Simulated scan of single mutants.
Amino acid sequence: MRLKPQYLFVIVVAGLVALYFIARSLMSLGAPATAHPKAKPPSGPPSVQARLIPEVERRYDVVVRGRTQATRAVVVRSETSGVVAQAPVLQGTYVRQGQVLCRLAVDARQAALDQAHAAEKSAELAQQQNEQLAAKGFRSPTQVLQGQANLDASRAAVRQAEIALAQVNLKAPFTGVFDHRDAEIGAFLGPGQPCGTMIEIDPLLVVGDVPETQAAKMKVGALATAKLVSGQTLSGRIRYVSRDADPQTRTYHLEMTLPNPRLDVRSGLSAEMHIGAGSGPAHLVPVSSLVLDSAGRQGVRYVVGDGRVAFAPVNVIEETHDGVWVTGLSGPVQLITVGQSYVADGQKVRVAAAQ
């Protein structure tokens, strides 16, 4: 049977491909085997860079985030009823203790005081007459005592009327800033209703919450500084540290007091407090040298005398632009600054000077 041309072409191509693979196999069997070079064994222990870090005496500061707060804030309230007749002080004004903030209408209070004075005068004259008649035997001791009681009652009525009249003047309870006014002229105030709010901001407080791990270091009277968001840095002292922790946050409330004679620092500003907590040995290490060990502890790796790696857990006490101050190391240490993450405790290393 005669093959069709297209079938013949396919058979020829398939034969050529088969011959190509057969020839290639024969050539590879006859060629000499190429020797694979063996990997070179590591030449000695790994190399790290280290730097000698000296031990220095350093002041320990506890950093606490907080905010400024008025030393005192009091809502001045009316003790009697009346319409506000005068509002002599603008809100935001610095006022002295005893200065009138709101004045109510006097109404009939002055008349009541005048009436009380008149009754007191009458009682005084009656008592004088009783004493004169008693000296002549025309008044009994009981009548004299009754007259004295009437005189005392009239004097008490005078005092009551004077207090009622004085209550129309709502005064500043201390020297400070009249921060907010609640009652304007024409408003009616009843007993207990507010005239406005007084705050004391000289001295000023900076308040914050310290974690329980640092609470034992806080001492009343300790020197402290506060850096405000405005860039100001003010100095003061710790005046209060709570003895009972907040049940939700497990932190302890503290208060720092600082002078503010020009009243230029406002209440409610964010602040960073640096509180002195003593002094002791510390080391300044690069931030990049901090590592974690297998237990998850933060620390550094350094080289001991025989060229082996050691790990020491550290506590960061302050962060600076030059590095972090840490405690937990003893004496000068050969700190590993490059390669600390690729070596293990007890491993022998070669030390090169840090660049």
Rank of each mutant, 00 (worst) to 15 (best):
Q160K: 14
A161I: 12
A161K: 12
A161C: 09
E162Q: 15
E162W: 00
E162M: 11
I163W: 12
A164M: 09
A164H: 00
A164T: 09
A164E: 15
L165S: 12
L165M: 13
L165Y: 10
A166P: 00
Q167N: 15
V168Q: 06
V168T: 15
V168F: 03
V168N: 00
V168R: 15
N169K: 15
L170I: 13
K171S: 12
K171E: 14
K171P: 04
K171F: 06
A172H: 13
A172L: 15
P173D: 01
P173I: 07
F174P: 03
T175L: 11
T175M: 03
T175Q: 15
T175Y: 05
G176W: 00
F178R: 11
D179A: 08
D179V: 07
H180I: 01
R181K: 14
R181T: 06
D182I: 07
D182G: 00
D182S: 14
A183K: 10
E184A: 12
I185Y: 04
I185L: 05
I185F: 02
G186F: 11
G186R: 03
A187T: 12
F188I: 05
F188A: 08
F188K: 05
L189W: 05
L189P: 11
L189G: 10
L189D: 07
P191C: 04
G192F: 08
G192M: 10
Q193S: 14
C195N: 07
C195E: 03
C195R: 12
C195V: 12
G196R: 00
G196K: 00
G196D: 06
T197K: 13
T197A: 09
M198T: 02
E200G: 03
E200S: 07
E200M: 03
I201A: 02
D202T: 11
D202N: 15
D202G: 03
P203T: 10
P203F: 11
P203L: 09
L204Q: 10
L205G: 08
L205E: 14
L205M: 11
L205D: 14
V207N: 09
V207C: 11
G208C: 04
V210E: 07
V210S: 01
V210C: 10
V210L: 06
V210W: 00
P211W: 01
P211E: 03
E212N: 06
E212V: 07
E212W: 05
T213G: 04
T213I: 05
T213Q: 03
Q214L: 13
Q214F: 12
A215Y: 06
A215E: 05
A216N: 13
A216C: 03
K217E: 08
M218N: 09
M218G: 04
K219N: 02
V220Y: 01
G221E: 01
G221D: 03
A222T: 09
A222G: 08
A222L: 08
L223N: 11
L223C: 01
L223E: 13
A224K: 01
A224R: 09
A224F: 03
T225A: 04
T225Y: 07
T225F: 00
T225H: 01
K227V: 05
V229H: 01
V229Q: 10
G231L: 00
G231Q: 07
G231F: 08
T233K: 02
T233M: 03
L234Q: 07
G236N: 01
I238Q: 10
I238W: 10
R239K: 11
Y240H: 15
Y240K: 13
V241N: 02
V241P: 02
V241E: 06
V241L: 12
S242H: 11
S242V: 05
S242L: 06
